[in-house]
Amino acid sequence: MADGSSEFLPFSNLRIGHAHDMRVRTGVTVILPDRASLCAVDVRGGAPGTRETDTLAPGGLVDRVHAIVLAGGSVYGLGAADAVCRELGAQGIGFVAGRPPIPVSPIVPSAILFDNANGGDKDWGTSPPYQRLGSEAFAAASGETGEGAIGAGYGATAGIYPGGFGMATETVGEATVCALIAANPVGSPFLPGTAVPHAWIYERDGEFGRLTPPADYRWSPPMDTKLSFLAQAGQNTVIGAVVTDAALSTSDLNRLAIMAQDGLALSVQPSHTPLDGDTIFALSIGEMELSGPGELSQLGSAAARAVARALTRGVLAAR
């Protein structure tokens, strides 16, 4: 079972930073590649909250990003990306639109989840904490990460359980794909009536506690989701990124993001509801060449498994 201890990222050219506010019960996660990297996004939920995702559409002027930000706070959390842009710009990192004194333009797509009803003090007036948390997460970026109640997963809930942030890695041949997920879904991550994760079949090295369904298990409608007390859309969401060292094109990354979303259906029931804003970024930070569509298909399948495991690890660590 994931225990919240630090895990090293599988890539030396990627850093991740987390920050949270205990009083507000919310947080921010910043994903930082060492250089501008190709990125795509897939938005599958019915109530997303995002920034600069249109920038990632195929055929646009800009096809690389300098950071990805995941945050709680619903629409207020989008302000965390402002702070990351400010920090990157001060270092001269960004899209170059002209010679100085024209400033660079950091490209920082972001997605938010709704944790505003979790009991934290949200009476922030005109000063939401997200720019501060964005700066703190940026400053904390390193080559390792914790799991559970940290960063964007700090105030999250998964069904009626604590949510959290998790990481999981899969390999296909020489290529690696790593999922970084903040879990705050409407649905439940557990088989109805049990403590067995939906994703139990994808477990690695006892990370879920080696729980399996009873021999006589029969599925029944879940009673541990948020559906019984939620009345509005936009109050949930799973957000995250899959990062690979495979040298993928923008088109390939779009497909990887689409396939990675299947990991939510493997680990949460129900998923991709009108009440969720499920958003997954796909980021290529390496030079590992794939042999063709067949290997990309395998990588996408691995990405889905990694998302399922990362989501489950985050929830279990938060508990």
Rank of each mutant, 00 (worst) to 15 (best):
L78W: 09
L78P: 03
G79Q: 11
A80Y: 01
A80P: 02
A81K: 04
A81M: 03
D82F: 13
D82G: 06
D82Y: 12
D82P: 07
D82Q: 04
V84P: 06
V84E: 11
V84M: 04
C85V: 13
R86C: 09
R86K: 10
E87C: 09
E87W: 07
L88A: 04
L88H: 09
L88C: 04
G89T: 00
G89W: 14
G89V: 05
G89P: 04
A90W: 08
A90K: 12
A90L: 13
A90F: 07
A90V: 01
Q91T: 02
Q91W: 11
G92M: 07
I93Q: 01
G94E: 02
G94P: 07
F95V: 04
F95G: 03
F95M: 09
V96C: 04
V96S: 11
A97C: 13
G98N: 09
P100M: 07
P100W: 15
P101M: 11
I102A: 12
I102R: 12
P103I: 14
V104N: 09
V104Y: 14
V104G: 08
V104S: 10
S105A: 15
S105D: 10
S105L: 15
P106W: 11
P106Y: 10
P106S: 03
I107Y: 11
V108C: 05
V108P: 04
P109Y: 09
P109V: 01
S110P: 01
S110G: 14
S110D: 01
S110T: 00
S110R: 01
S110K: 02
L113V: 14
L113T: 06
L113H: 06
L113F: 10
F114P: 00
F114D: 03
D115R: 01
D115N: 06
D115M: 02
D115V: 03
N116D: 08
N116A: 14
N116M: 14
G119T: 05
G119N: 06
G119P: 07
